[in-house]
Design a protein around this nucleic acid. Structure first.
Lengths: 183, 183
DNA sequence: GTCTATAAGGGGATAGAC
DNA sequence: GTCTATCCCCTTATAGAC
């Protein structure tokens, strides 16, 4: 075991959340995984919600720099490329987490209330432009859903990160009709 | 209230599962929604799992006819068109259900053990052909994930079923490079 | 940092009356 | 079909010793 007791809790939680979902993971399971008691876990975090937030925060924190980098570009096409590449990287890096992050009702509540949601909306606007039509909104929803699910799909675990990243980027760009090469 | 007591339970369960997830929905919540007690619900179904199965069965039952219709077509292109159209129809019809059906750890377990999984595999093979490469498998995973998520996306609830169906079909076909018109 | 012990509540499920 | 009452288990969370 490397890292502080706090880090050990977070690593165990990430593993268990990925396998059983947040609602399906009790503090007892986290404690058992570490070989300690529930009270020891409570010494590190005051509530279960705090553990969930600490697990998902690093992933959500990746979004803000993507939005800033995209907004520094001048053309809408370049902005779309930056958003797409950044989000794909993030999804691959947090493969195991994304399924849990998007669907568990507990996390859904925590994410809805999270400040990072404004960044998510900025990223969507960077992809769609303002006042998108129905077809464009469906395109973006398909890509968002596809990235999350494909990132966690068991059938794709044999692909290494770099291969998965490349395929996801190509497919997402085709769906959104974004050219990946500039000019 | 129209329908048998059993039907009322299933309708209430569908609503609550869609909103809170299966793990987040207790028998007490279902009973409260109907204005009865838990024991009355248990009179209709022996276990909670049985309720979940009864809710998802109609959606899973839609898959088999799609596979059969597709297999009656002679060209791979025609088969892909039939699978795509059928699955999109099913996703739209069961909009609220699909999120729950795909991600809740409880349902995930029930679906994995369900006989309809062999049909799912047949549909995937109809789309990809046998022995697909990594890029093709990512394409299919993206479309599957995108359909499920877009179908349940709150931001798209303003679209009526027919509009949503049309956009989903167009976008999914583009992602998979399937031509929707034959010939 | 970790322990034992316990509180307080909700979960699924059952027994038996009406 | 529905009720009351209950069982047993697991959950989050707290108190206080070491």
């Amino acid at each position: 075991m490397i890292g502080s007791a706090r880090d050990r809790v977070l690593r165990a939680a990430l593993d268990l959340f990925g396998e059983h979902g947040v609602s399906g993971t009790s503090l007892q399971m986290i404690a058992d995984e570490l070989g300690v008691t529930k009270a020891a876990v409570y010494h590190q975090f005051p509530t279960k919600d705090e553990i969930v937030l600490a697990v998902i925060d690093p992933a959500l924190a990746r979004l803000e720099p993507i939005a800033e980098a995209a907004e520094r570009r001048r053309t809408p096409a370049a902005r779309r490329r930056v958003v797409l590449a950044g989000v794909v990287d993030m999804v691959v890096e947090y493969r195991r987490l994304s399924r849990v992050l998007s669907f568990d009702p507990v996390v859904s509540r925590l994410v809805r209330q999270h400040p990072a949601m404004t960044t998510v909306n900025r990223l969507v606007t960077l992809l769609t432009g303002t006042d998108p039509d129905g077809a464009t909104r469906v395109d973006v929803a398909m890509v968002a859903g596809g990235l999350v699910l494909a990132g966690t799909e068991n059938a794709l675990t044999d692909l290494d990160d770099e291969t998965l990243r490349r395929h996801l980027l190509t497919t997402a760009a085709r769906t959104l009709r974004v050219r990946l090469s500039d000019g």
